[in-house]
Design a binder for these strands. Structure first.
Length: 744
DNA sequence: CACAGGTCTCTTTTT
DNA sequence: GAGACCTGTG
């Protein structure tokens, strides 16, 4: 296999296949490249793809990895287990959940569902939600699960310290309810899989046999539960390769434990440690700024990124009077760059600390009719109409899911209100049957009027019919039938409002998503099932929908931007109280929290390939109020000479008279930066596009696919894309420098 | 039972 | 500024 376009350390990362390996990969150092080559290398060494596992955090990262492996080896990566932590666990639990007391058709609860359930628990336990808000309870429960602390242990620990056991009681009841509903929340998926492995040795052994080589991406983001999961999974062969960057650990609030990566060598004795410090993404000017900021963190693994790229443009900073002006500058600049053909809309990105910042930017973009896309905010699947219809499907898939059932029992309105629900619930409890069963016996519930009982019976009958229907038909047919029976779209049409129109469009999109799911499952030879579709839907991340080929400006949070890169980046809101977030300031753990914010800043800066603009505003509307914020300390950590213009006075910490950058709109002549050459879209390296030894019509040989005829050669600029019709495996498209075809 | 209109609170990041 | 929650009315 040709490894010539890897640097020495990258090569080491690819070829050190035995035992534990830690790859400390700085931003833009080609870590995905190493992982994908590693997988390809293993296959070439004769390892069955079936025995390889790669775990990521987002679906986007997973599918990207799969397609990149495909690009290198042509095809054959489909047998590799490439999946996110959560979908990995779902796949495992769908087979074995019955071993730990759940049905295998369990439902997955999203944050919304969890909140609702928690609210019910508080009500049931008669706990004042003013003193114990759901939010606090849920975050405590979530942290406990991230640390693999079940409610028994949580309760015991609390009692040991003689503390208030309220939250422990909530945790217990919450967990009991989940089980009764045959549901799991996000954290359960990981925790329960670990529990399964610890309890059922035979199950674990089975996976040990399968997973001979395990790789984990973004290892710095793993929490204790995920750490344990990996340890268990890789425990058979101990061929574990983790890739990460402690400087990019930004998910502490989600339980991420930075010590998982910092102490890797202690956990896995004899681990090989490989550092990747050469950056192939950004200009020196950008890297210097990134390094200047991150060096203020203590307790990090010492490293410093460097690059051979040309210096490039200076990083720019602009202090604005208002958030409005900030937006104006950004949008004006994006527009100008596009007009000057320096950066197209698709090459520009706006990254911010909080989702709330997107609104004002969006308004401005609409005003200037610039195409854009906002990642995050309100998740598609969190919309009312979508949740309603999905809830129908959930009830069909898992009749025990009372949460979903209660959501739709009166949607659309069928005259079943809270009073009726209470009466059914009482009957269910009194007779020790489920809510669903009670509904089916509505005529026996004496407290219900005849008219009401009829309504309930009618609804119960509808569900039964749908359930029977779904046994014979695929999810798409079920959804269409639900829409028909409930007249959901009909009712919206009658409203004749813009809002209703948008909702109908969303429903149409949901329908096509179901069809897309079925098509894909079909292609990949997976079983098409309602359960699988619903699981997939529950586990989509905002970023999964992002296509970098779209020619639009993207807006997203700094968190979502991790792993991405853009030639032209804007980071507005560089202000104290916003970034770093006010929540990180003034607490007992301020120093630690600030370090996390700083890492987030580092992530943001290192997203930029060529041009980076930081902005800050003196006035900013926050929580419906105007806030006056000082310039972010992170900006002040950047030596002045690294920034464009004398833009702030480091000695004047009142920030009252920030100097505005005058040439914000002026005509910068962009130096021909090395980005074309170094952008990681080209696999982050100097590609040596060599002349081909074959041409269209020639017979060629591929190390894996055997012989075939060249059908088409496409000059893609940095590499040739070759289409070959192989004798055995059919037509494949591949990059010449990866495929290493030889003329025969 | 449904809905409108008022008041209240809480605001980070997300699989 | 949005969302949840409460209350009064038809």
């Amino acid at each position: 296999m040709d490894l010539t376009m890897l640097n020495e350390n990258q090569k080491l990362g690819v070829t050190t296949t035995k035992g534990p390996v830690l790859i400390l990969a700085g931003a833009g150092s080609g870590k995905t490249r190493v992982l994908t080559y590693r997988a390809a290398y293993l296959i070439e060494q004769g390892v069955n793809p079936y025995n390889i596992m790669a775990i990521t955090f987002t679906n986007k990262a997973a599918s990207e990895m799969r397609s990149r492996i495909d690009q290198i080896v042509g095809h054959g990566s489909s047998a590799i287990w490439v999946a996110t932590f959560h979908s990995t666990c779902v796949r495992i639990l769908r087979r074995f959940a019955d071993r730990i007391g759940y049905d295998t058709n369990f439902t997955i609860y999203d944050a919304d569902d969890s909140k609702k359930l928690c609210k019910e628990v508080l009500k049931k336990l008669d706990i004042d939600s003013k003193l114990y808000p759901e939010k606090r309870c849920l975050s405590e429960i979530s942290s406990a699960k991230d640390e693999l602390v079940g409610y028994e242990k949580y309760l015991a620990d609390v009692h040991d310290y003689g503390d208030d056991d309220t939250i422990a009681r909530v945790y217990r009841e919450y967990q009991i309810q989940l089980k009764e509903n045959n549901a799991m929340d996000f954290d359960d998926l990981i925790m329960l899989t670990v529990e399964l492995f610890k309890k059922c040795d035979d199950v674990l052994k089975g996976y040990h046999e399968r997973f001979q080589y395990v790789m984990v991406d973004e290892y710095q983001d793993t929490n204790t539960a995920q750490f344990e999961l990996i340890k268990l999974l890789a425990g058979g062969s101990n061929n574990l390769c983790v890739v990460g960057d402690d400087d990019q650990s930004i998910y502490k609030f989600r339980g991420a434990n930075i010590y998982n990566i910092l102490n890797f060598e202690d956990t896995y004795e004899g681990a090989t440690v490989i550092k990747l410090e050469e950056n192939y993404r950004s200009t020196p000017n950008i890297l210097n700024v990134a390094n200047a900021v991150i060096k203020n963190n203590i307790g990090r693994k010492d490293k410093s990124l460097w690059t051979e790229a040309d210096e490039g443009e200076k990083v720019r900073f602009s202090r604005c009077d208002s958030a409005y002006e900030e937006a104006e500058k950004i949008v004006g600049d994006i527009d100008k760059m596009a007009r000057l053909k320096k950066y197209s809309y698709g090459q520009s990105a706006i990254l911010y600390r909080t989702n709330a910042q997107s609104r004002i930017l969006e308004e401005k973009l609409i005003q200037e009719t610039i195409p854009y896309r906002i990642i995050g905010g309100i998740n598609f699947y969190a919309r009312k109409e979508i949740k309603d219809l999905i809830s129908y499907m959930k009830v069909i898939s898992n009749p025990k899911d009372d949460l979903a059932l209660l959501r739709i029992i009166n949607v659309p309105k069928r005259g079943i209100g809270q009073t009726t629900i209470n009466k059914i619930q009482d009957y269910a409890w009194g007779n020790n049957i489920s809510f669903n069963e009670a509904m089916n016996k509505a005529d026996k519930i004496s407290s219900l009027s005849k008219a009401t009982a009829t309504k309930v019976t009618k609804f119960a009958k509808l569900l039964n019919e749908l359930s029977e229907f779904s046994e014979k038909k695929p999810p798409s047919d079920l959804l269409e039938r639900i829409i028909e029976e409930t007249e959901y779209v009909e009712l919206l049409k009658n409203e004749k409002t813009e809002e209703a129109k948008a909702r109908i469009e969303n429903i149409d999109e949901l329908v096509s998503k179901v069809y897309m799911y079925e098509e894909r499952a079909n292609d990949e030879g997976e079983e098409i099932s309602l359960d699988n579709f619903l699981a997939e839907v529950s586990l989509v991340a905002d970023i999964d929908g992002y296509e970098d080929s779209d020619e639009v400006v993207v807006l997203m949070t700094l968190h979502s931007s991790k792993g991405l890169e853009f030639p032209n980046v804007y980071i507005p809101g560089m202000e104290e109280n916003l970034f770093p977030s006010g929540r990180s300031l003034g607490g007992p753990d301020e120093a630690k929290e600030l370090e996390e914010e700083r890492r987030l800043c580092y992530v943001g800066i290192t997203r930029a390939e060529e041009r980076l603009t930081l902005l800050s505003s003196a006035m900013r509307p926050m929580r419906g109020q105007i806030n006056y914020n000082a310039i972010s300390r992170f900006v002040k950590e950047i030596p002045k000479d690294l920034l464009d213009g004398n833009v702030w006075e480091p000695t004047n910490n009142k920030d009252k008279e920030p100097v505005k950058i005058s040439d914000m709109f002026s005509n910068h002549s962009r130096k021909p930066v090395a980005a074309q050459k170094y952008s990681a879209k080209n696999f982050g390296s100097k590609i040596n596009k060599q002349p081909l030894s074959y041409e269209v019509g020639d017979r060629v040989k591929h190390f894996k696919f055997g012989e075939g005829e060249v059908k088409l050669i496409n000059d893609g600029g940095r590499d040739y894309e070759v289409t070959v019709d192989f004798d055995d495996v059919g037509t494949k498209k591949m990059f010449a420098s990866f495929a290493k075809l030889t003329k025969v």
